[in-house]
Write a protein that binds this DNA or RNA. Structure first.
Lengths: 132, 132
DNA sequence: CGGCATCCAACTCGATACTG
DNA sequence: CAGTATCGAGTTGGATGCCG
């Protein structure tokens, strides 16, 4: 009998993972997981939206954070910004093709989250109860 | 002619969205998007891992953050913690069924991120160049 | 070995005020 | 209308030291 084995099931070796890939994944999850991106992207899922429409549609967002988040999404090529230099100025935002493909992934993530929400909440309640 | 129409394509109305659902999605994205969760979950994808194995396997993580992140994942029912009270103590972590199902979703997110990484990097470079 | 407590630097985000 | 600038509270995460 192999004495190097322990009484509990031996952990398997972790798969070698590409740290660079993980970093890429994390960066995207961090972007989409920040405070407002989900709401903004979701609102644009149905087509172009004016700045003011997004502002009204997303309860509680400050002008600053809406601008900032849209800039970041634009920088990553997920959102297209179109300025109409009228008076007053008009700016529309819409998902790019890339942004739309991300939106689809986010939807599947969303399905998972909704499907397992109660399971997570139960786990939390149990954990919190156990740790007085 | 309808004077309410503008010269650029009229934005469509945003779909009504369930804010509560969005909050759920955001919470999960925020958990998985924090600095270390992706790496940790990914390492556990291949089976149970000891605390020290995770620590060694994840370059740059502090003990504090490993403990903290594992606690949060455990609290959400994504990770199972098993203590063997030997000397020295031994603690193993593994994905629960729920955690594994999230891991699958994260993989599809990962596929997207890897497939579009260069596209995002190009967009960033262009954006940064444009804004001097 | 695994983990908690403390301290501190860096960043995030909201409030507010001002501009073309 | 859409955006920028500034300030301050709150949060995140790293370093360090101690404990069973």
């Amino acid at each position: 009998m192999d004495v190097s084995a322990t009484e509990i099931s031996a952990p398997t070796q972790a798969q070698p993972h590409n740290t660079n890939d993980c970093e890429t994944v994390r960066a995207i999850l961090a972007r989409t997981g920040d405070k407002w991106s989900v709401l903004i992207v979701k609102m644009m899922g149905s087509g172009p939206q004016r700045f003011s429409a997004l502002r009204r549609g997303i309860t509680g967002i400050s002008q600053r954070m809406l601008t900032l988040t849209l800039r970041n999404l634009e920088r990553d090529g997920l959102v297209l910004r179109t300025v109409t230099p009228s008076t007053p100025p008009r700016v529309d935002y819409e998902l790019t093709r890339l942004g739309h493909s991300l939106w689809i992934i986010m939807e599947s993530f969303g399905q998972w989250a909704i499907a397992h929400r109660s399971e997570i909440e139960t786990a939390r309640a149990r954990f919190d109860a156990r740790n007085h």
